[in-house]
Computed example of a mutant assay.
Amino acid sequence: METPAVGVTGGLRILLRLEGLALLAAMAAVYAWQGTSWWLFAALFFTPDLSFAGYLLGSRPGAIIYNAVHTTVVPGVLLGIGLVLGQPLAVALAVIWLAHIGFDRALGYGLKQPDGFGFTHLGRIGRVAI
């Protein structure tokens, strides 16, 4: 049986978590600057976590679904399109989505590896048995 993959550790892990915190702070500032309702922000902030349901299909499909929703690529593209087309709702949705990703990364919830929910690119989630 293979040993589950291990994520980054030490200073690099701290740096990546600080990067997540910076993303969260930047997106909160952009959201405040945009002047959109904070009720919308609060209502949608944890929506990406519905992707946890993918784990009902198993670890590999769960990781694929979770990672598809928790990568910055799609909300980044949505943000760009919203800015170019002058669509404030698209911008707000993208900013909320990116803020959520930053929040998760700051807490150490990284992109998932197919070994199981607790194995991420930021390291193991939870207590590690000795």
Rank of each mutant, 00 (worst) to 15 (best):
E2A: 10
T3L: 12
T3I: 12
P4Y: 05
V6Y: 04
G7V: 00
V8Q: 05
V8K: 03
T9I: 14
T9D: 15
G10I: 14
G11T: 14
L12R: 15
L12I: 08
R13N: 12
R13S: 11
I14T: 12
L16H: 10
L16E: 02
L16C: 03
R17W: 06
L18F: 11
L18R: 13
E19V: 07
E19D: 09
L21M: 11
L23G: 00
A26N: 12
M27K: 02
A28L: 15
A28E: 12
A28Y: 05
A29P: 05
V30P: 03
Y31P: 04
A32C: 07
A32V: 11
W33T: 02
W33D: 05
G35F: 02
T36F: 03
S37C: 07
S37F: 01
W38V: 07
W38K: 03
L40R: 06
F41R: 00
F41N: 00
A42N: 08
A42W: 11
A42Q: 12
A42F: 12
A43P: 05
A43H: 11
L44V: 01
L44F: 06
F45S: 00
F45V: 06
T47K: 09
D49G: 11
L50V: 14
L50K: 02
F52V: 11
G54C: 02
G54V: 04
L56M: 15
L56G: 15
L56N: 14
G58F: 12
S59T: 12
R60A: 07
P61S: 02
A63Y: 06
I65F: 08
I65V: 13
Y66P: 06
Y66K: 10
A68P: 13
A68I: 08
A68E: 10
V69S: 08
T71Q: 09
T72R: 13
V73M: 12
V74E: 05
P75D: 01
P75M: 01
G76S: 02
L78R: 00
L79R: 06
G82T: 08
L83A: 10
L83H: 03
L85D: 10
Q87M: 13
Q87K: 10
P88V: 11
A90W: 14
V91S: 04
A92G: 07
A94H: 01
W97M: 02
W97D: 02
I101V: 13
G102L: 09
D104S: 05
D104C: 06
D104G: 00
R105I: 05
R105Q: 03
G108D: 09
G108T: 07
Y109I: 12
G110F: 04
K112V: 05
Q113W: 09
G118D: 15
F119C: 11
H121E: 11
H121V: 11
L122S: 02
L122M: 08
L122E: 04
R124V: 09
R124T: 09
